[in-house]
Amino acid sequence: MAEIQIKNVAKSFGAYQALNNINLTIADQEFMVLLGASGCGKSTLLRIIAGLETATSGEVWIGGKRIDHLSPKDRGIAMVFQNYAVFPHLTVFENIGFGLRMQKLPNDEVTQRVERVAGLMHIEMLLKRYSGELSGGQRQRVAVARALAMEPDVILMDEPLSNLDALLRMEMRAELKGVLAESKTTAIYVTHDQVEAMSMADRISVMHEGNIVQAASPIEVYRDPAAKFVASFIGNPPMNFLPATPAGAGKWQVSGQTFDGPNTDKAGLQFAIRPEDMAPAEHGLVATAKIVEPLGAHLLVTCQIDEAQFRVILDSDTVVKPGQTLTLAPQSDRVRWFDPETTLAVA
């Protein structure tokens, strides 16, 4: 059992507040992704859990034991680094077995465990090589194998795939997910790549300016963003926003159209919809097409509604020309509303 609890963790570097009062619980065997733009504090949080950074305040618990005062080696964690950190003076075998040797395990057990994880990561044939003789992808496999060989309670990964090329990244993504699910370890994975986050995570914590804005399943983060930041960060292209004014109880006026919305007494809200949740119809929002990008699988149209920029994803067979007027009907169950003052979602 390795449940991770992060309690009121804050970190400041001088006057700069990198993390504000983070609270997060990660269940045993859960795959948690910390997602955010660079500088949001996600790596700092990971390094605090690893013990490579000391929190200014707060507590970190792993498996019911407080570990924030322990050194990295005593925390039951293993870490995979962005630049692999494969030791250049050791063979792949000795790299993977490094932690086991430090634990003074008998030789045959080291050999057995190294061979097992090497098989898991498909690098059995590389065991005698040095890091200089490996490609980036192979080094990454060694780094993951080295972490797995420790059979840790928790595996921490800091943007492990970001130095790989796109195709390899996609391949490794699927493979990592499979291997980690099988190993039954709790995993925390830091990335700025939302596709990686969506495809691998059991749960995503979206971070922004040292705060966790939302921690939820990938589909929930996508469908029901808790704040405008999440809505505009996740999704490619992100959600569209239009200003809405009240038009009676539970009714809101958006660009001349009336929609059912939350029943609040706010002076104004923001109407939000994902680009793929719109379809041409007889009645709806009137938009002027500006840029038409055929992307193969679908058609991305950037248009204008009143003064606002608005993107829609249409079927690739749709014929649209720049300057043309479109009438777009939003799928009513996919419309979301945000409070422009708090930027939080309004139900």
Partner: peptide, 11 residues
């Protein structure tokens, strides 16, 4: 990172 990796691996 090489040193940090070593720390997490029991050094």
């Amino acid at each position: 990172e090489l040193e940090e990796a070593a720390w997490t691996l029991g050094c």
